[in-house]
Design a binder for these strands. Structure first.
Lengths: 370, 370
DNA sequence: CTCCTGGATGGAAGCGCTTACAAACGCACG
DNA sequence: CGTGCGTTTGTAAGCGCTTCCATCCAGGAG
């Protein structure tokens, strides 16, 4: 219980050594690899450390071993479950590997290079996640200086890449809508080459092409709520002029009634889909009876909504974990490897026309046994 | 464009100095305070640094100045918008202050002290946020070694505390339910003294007491989905035996019909409320007609749900920012200050019986025209 | 033309830790 | 009771950077 007396002589390895009556080398060993120190000595050291409330200075260690034992993560400046999961997966894995994680949120405008230097200087490797800035160039530069991985974002040569499978899931999803009788299917989202949403768009196109159909509409919207609302407005407006609706001339008699000449909308993510559904519903339309809408990400809301939102679930946390492990490997000297893709699974709920119990039930009352 | 030739002679301040034909002191000044270096020299230094892709070693700087310029955050091992917002607020503020943030997720069980030491060693201050572990003791210990703040969690002496106002909001919320004609109001959540939910419970009690009412029921549930589901089951079960329902004997004729002798449930957070509503609805009951339910946090889902969930919004991001600023101040030498509370605002939606447009209207089927 | 002053630079001493390398020790063996 | 080996410990040399202090230099004042 003896207090330190003075106020701030922050305890260093020297004070601990002195207090325990050993050399600093011994203290260092006791903390680094206890087995290298005789039991009695070790106990004395720990006791001294405890009394002094000694906290090893990570900086000094990092300097000595030329390794910070920390990983950097760069995420978009966004709050949301998607990023949270990614981050949690990463952190948990990193921490299991004994690595700290330093977080940097990418500010869109303020491209302060000092900030990235600051991050780089304190980590052994960095992970760029999900459209953190539109900065392939930054990623490339960073990758020249530190092991780098890119998660759920565009690829950059020389950088390890991880992402959830998008294209074939999008195809499956779209095909599912076809089974529901949809024929005039639109897509919502920017089809940027290489982005996740871009890949989803490809899959959507694949399915359509395979069915001999053409895209019924395309709304280039940012994957955010406001953009979704705008799309909904457009739809509503177009539907107004379009007297189609009441008279109806559906390609298939059992599909949705249709809105603005469309009977389904594949949205780039849940946020978009949710916003669109909300606006349409507020206008008195019904999803999926009037229009089928699907999302992507399986956010909490997708699950609680009624009708439930049909969407695609990706093990985002796993992506984060993979990234952390890869980074550790790279730091350990391993070379860059091929991009890794993890699977995604369709989550069928009611917004596509399925029945509440998740059965791929149909407007066409065929056997759901398959 | 000249390549480095060799592969890994990581550039240090020495190589930059040599390359630029100056001393390391000058390079250091150029990076630290450019105004201390003659323009010509400065340019030469930066040019050399650029060519060499020099990244200052944060560890060395930290060692020299005895300050890491980094803040630690400890969060529960949870993904969710609440924590994300907290974190974003914190990070943005920290980064504006030129501080990095290192993230540590508190693992419930694995109380590995090495992990906390590791964190402590690399930051100048740490923020414990929202029930990160049930570890007041850990917080206290940390606070003896580093400036510490506690955000949205129990108070610890000697630690700066920030939280959103809970008690009076809970009282206002409960009073609002009384206005809707509710009289048999229950509470869902652990009323731990000092926790956020505990404070909400107090506010609820305050309102009841002021109205001369007594708590109608209390469900001690963890603030998670599963616990909410369980509460709902209990409700359903009790309601079954309770033949009350059909015959009905509401205290007020215009309140909800009631479920299991209750006509309203104030839940500790949205997650709980959402789960309860979902289960009840699945069982054919109606919220708010049969039972009024409210949440706390104003999650995205609360907004998209229909009926919308009446809840309480807190500027969580602001809390994070406040914490970061306080930490910076404490590191700068300022003393611990009184706990700071920020306001919360009631968000009235339909689950309490209000009309869709937010009017404090009543359940009776009045014109939806409004 | 000399002296002084302030600005620009370099020299060098740490910051707290790790880690060869060497010294010291204990002890089993012959 | 030496000898030799393995174990435990200490000595000291950095790791890359900041910063105090001294030095140097260009001008302006005298």
């Amino acid at each position: 219980m003896m207090l330190n007396g003075d106020s701030l002589p922050v305890p260093t390895i020297y004070q601990v050594a002195e207090h325990a009556g050993v050399s600093i080398a011994t203290v260092s060993r006791a903390f680094g690899d206890p087995s290298k120190v005789a039991p009695r000595t070790r106990d004395a050291v720990f006791e001294a450390a405890r009394e002094l409330r000694y906290v090893p200075a990570a900086a000094a260690r990092a300097l000595a071993v030329r390794r910070s034992k920390a990983l950097g993560v760069v995420l978009p400046h966004i709050a949301g479950p998607y990023y949270a999961e990614l981050l949690v997966g990463f952190e948990v894995a990193a921490s299991e590997l004994g690595l700290s994680v330093v977080l940097a949120l990418a500010r869109p405008q303020e491209q302060r290079p000092a900030a990235v230097l600051d991050l780089l200087g304190r980590v052994d490797g960095v992970a760029f996640m999900a459209r953190s800035g539109a900065d392939d160039e930054v990623v490339r530069q960073v990758s020249e200086v530190r092991p780098t991985v890119s998660v759920a974002r565009g690829r950059v040569t020389g950088v390890d890449a991880f992402y959830a499978e998008n294209r074939s899931s999008a195809r499956r999803l779209t095909e599912h809508l076809l089974e529901h009788g949809c024929r005039r299917i639109g897509f919502v989202g920017h089809p940027e080459e290489g982005s996740d949403i871009g890949r989803r768009h490809r899959g959507y196109l694949d399915a359509l092409a395979a069915a001999g159909l053409t895209p019924a509409a395309h709304f280039a919207a940012d994957p955010v709520e406001d953009a979704g609302l705008e799309v909904a407005e457009q739809l509503l407006e177009a539907d107004q002029s379009d007297s189609d609706r009441a008279s109806g001339s559906p390609a298939s008699s059992d599909g949705p009634r249709g809105v603005a000449g469309l009977d389904a909308l594949v949205c780039g993510n849940d946020e978009l889909a949710l916003a669109i559904i909300a606006r349409l519903t507020a206008a008195g339309l019904d999803v999926p009876a009037d229009l089928v809408v699907t999302g992507w990400d399986d956010t909490v809301t997708a699950r609680y909504l009624s009708p439930g939102l049909t969407t695609v679930r990706q093990e985002v946390g796993e992506l984060g974990a993979l990234a952390a492990h890869r980074l550790a490997a790279r730091i350990g000297g391993e070379p860059v490897q091929e991009p890794v893709t993890i699977g995604s699974t369709l989550v069928l709920r009611e917004s596509c026309g399925c029945l509440p119990d998740g059965v791929s039930g149909t407007p066409p009352p065929t056997a759901p046994a398959a």
